[in-house]
Design a protein around this nucleic acid. Sequence first.
DNA 1: TCTGACAGACTTTTT
DNA 2: GTCTGTCAGA
Length: 683
Amino acid sequence: MISDSPVQTLTDMIHELNPAQREAVYHNDGPILVIAGAGSGKTKTLVCRVARLISEGVSPESILLLTFTRKSSHEMLRRAADLLDERCRRVSGGTFHGFANIILHKYAHYLGYSHQFTILDRSDSEDLVGMIRKELGFHKTEKKFPQKGTLGSIIGKGVNTSRRIEDVIAKDYSQFMEFGREIAQIATAYQDQKRRMQVMDYDDLLVQLLTLLKSAPDICDELQEKYRYIMVDEYQDTNRVQAEILRYLTGEPANIMAVGDDAQSIYSFRGANFKNIMMFPELFPGTELVKLEQNYRSSQPILDLTNALISRAKEKYAKNLFTDRGDGSMPIYVETRSEFEQSRFVAQKIEEYRKAGVPLSEMAVLIRSGWHSNDLEVQLQSASIPFVKFGGFKFMESSHIKDVIAYLKIAHNPLDSVSWNRCLLSLDGLGPKAAGDLIADLLSSKAKDPQAVLAKLGKRMFYAELAALFQLVFGSSELTVSELMERVLVYYRPIFTTRYDDFPKRTQDLESLIEIAGRYDSLSEFLAEITLDPPDSTLSLESSPVMIDSDYLTVSTIHSAKGLEWKVVFLISAVDGYLPSAQSLGDLGQLEEERRLMYVALTRAKDELFIIKPKIDMQGQNYHRFGGLPMSEPSRFLTEGQLLDKFSEKMALEPKNDRPKPSFMASYDSASDDDPIRSKYRF
DNA sequence: TCTGACAGACTTTTT
DNA sequence: GTCTGTCAGA
C-alpha cells in the first residue's frame, strides 16, 4: 500500500528532500511544528529525521516516537531501518495509550494503583456505566434517561476536553439538561468504581499519566532525561491532555517535533481538537514552523478538487498544495440508481484495472461507515476479487470473544467486576441479583478469600459450576497464557455451544484468539495489547500465509485509511446523509469534521479517483431512515461551489435492468474509445 | 429471583 | 439486526 522505492540509503534519501523537508530533518534542538499537507512526504520526513539522528550517534532508545496507530509506528521504524540499520527498531514509542500503559504499569503504585491494573475497552466501560446507572435507579425515570453509551460519551468528553460534565451537557447534549446532576453523579461513581476495581479506561491512561507527571517530579525528570527527542505524528488528532503530557515530558529547550495537518483532523469525537495544533506554538515558546506544501502523491486534477474542497473549510492554517506532476485524469463522478449497481460498477472497474496491469494492492474502496460496504463485499466475493477490510470491524465486540476475554481478565484481576458480571450471568439460575451480591462480596474482601465468598452462598443450584469457575480463576496463577486459555475453553465450551446455535461459525474466532494469545508470554501483556491494539482487519485474523502474500484489494473506512495512499481510489456512497453523516448535520463543528473526512478520503488517490453516489433505496431496509426519504442528493461538500461540475468528469451509466446478472462482467462493456479503462458510457 | 417472550429504540468513525 | 426494558410465569 505504501510505495517504496528500491533500496535507498539515507544519503540518497536526504539528497531528494525539498528545502522544507530538509529543514525539518536537520532540525536539532527546540520545538518545531511541521504542518504537512496531504501527500507532502510527512512520513518520509519523520523517518529521515529518526535515521539521521541515529546515524549521528543519538541512541535509539532516547527517541520517543508517538504515533496514532501501532501500525504506522511499525511502518516508520521499518522504513528507518531500511534506510540505516536495525538500530532504528529500538526507538521508543507507539501510541500515546500504549506508551502511557507502559509507564503506568511501572509506576502504578505512585497513584494508588496496583501494577496488575487492567484496561477497560469502550464496551467494558459502557457496561460499567450501565451497571451504575441501574444501581442508582436511573433506568426507570419518567422521561427517558440517556443510555449507557451516551453516558459514556458524555463522561469521556468531559475528561478529554477538561470540562465539567454539566458544561458538556449544556453544550453538546442539551436534550439531557434536566439530568445534569444525575449524570454527574454517575460520572463520580464511575470514577470511584474504576479505582476500586483496579481498572483504567482509555481516557484514564492519559489522565493518570498526566497526574503522575504532575505529582511526581522525580519521575518527570527521569523521563525527560530518558527521552531526549520526542516526535509526535498526527498531532491534529491529539487532545488537551495529550498536549499537557508532552509539556511535562519535555525539558528546556523542549526537543519536540510535532507533525500534522489541521485539514485532516477527523477524531474530534474522541476528544481530539484540531485547534491543539494551532496552539502548539503557544504551548512551546520559540517554536519553529515549517510547512510542507509540495504534494508528491496526487495528480494535478485530483489536487484541484481537493484544494477547492478544503478551501471552503471555515478554520485552517492557510496552505496551498501544489505538485509538479504533469497532468493526470480528472476525478470521475458516477451516479448509480442503486447500491447494487454501485457495487457492480466498482467490481467491474477493478477488474478492468487489474487486466490493465494495476495490482489490487494499488486500489482501495473507501467508506464512511463499516456497513456501507456490505453489498459490495458480497459482489467482490462472487467476482472472486480478494479483499481485506479495515476498520468498522468488530472482532473484540462479538459476544463470544468478550466472554473468553472476561475469564482471562478476572483471572488476572479478580476485582474486575464488569468481567465478573459477564462470567457469572452465564451460569444457570444465577441472575443479576445473585451476581451483584457475589461481586459485592468479592470486592469488599478484595478477593482475598474466595472460598469464604463461596461458602457464604450455601448450596444453590449453580454451586458446582461456580466452584469450577472459582477454581479456574483463582487456581491458575502459575499457568502460561496458552495453558490458561486452554482451561478457559474447556470450561467455556458447554456454555458456548448451548448459548449460540451458530457456534460452528464462531469457533473460528476462538481459534484466532488462541493463536493470538499464543504469541504472548504474559497475560498482562496479552490483555493490554488486545485492548490497545485490537485486530483491525479481517487480515489480522487470517493467519494463512497464502492470504498475506497474495495481492488483495483494500476496503477501508476513511478513518482507517488515514496516512495511506493508492493509485486508484473509489469513494462509494458519497450521499448526503452518509457523508456528511446525518447525525452530524446539527452541529457546525461536526459538519466541518465531515468535510475534512471527505478531504482525507479524496487525498488518498494518486492517479485515478472515482466518486460514486448511488440512490439509497429504503425498501426492505428500515434501519437507516433519516426523515423517511430515500437519500438521493450527492454529498453537499461536492455540490457546494459546483465542485463536481468544475473539477470532475461525469460518467453516465447505461440504463440497465437493475437485477443481479449471472455474469455481471457483461454489463458495461459496450462503449469504448481510445483508452479502454476510461471509456465513456452514454445513455 | 430468574427466565423467556415481547415491544420499542437506535444504529459513525477508534485508542 | 442489536440492545433495553417490561411483564408473566416458574
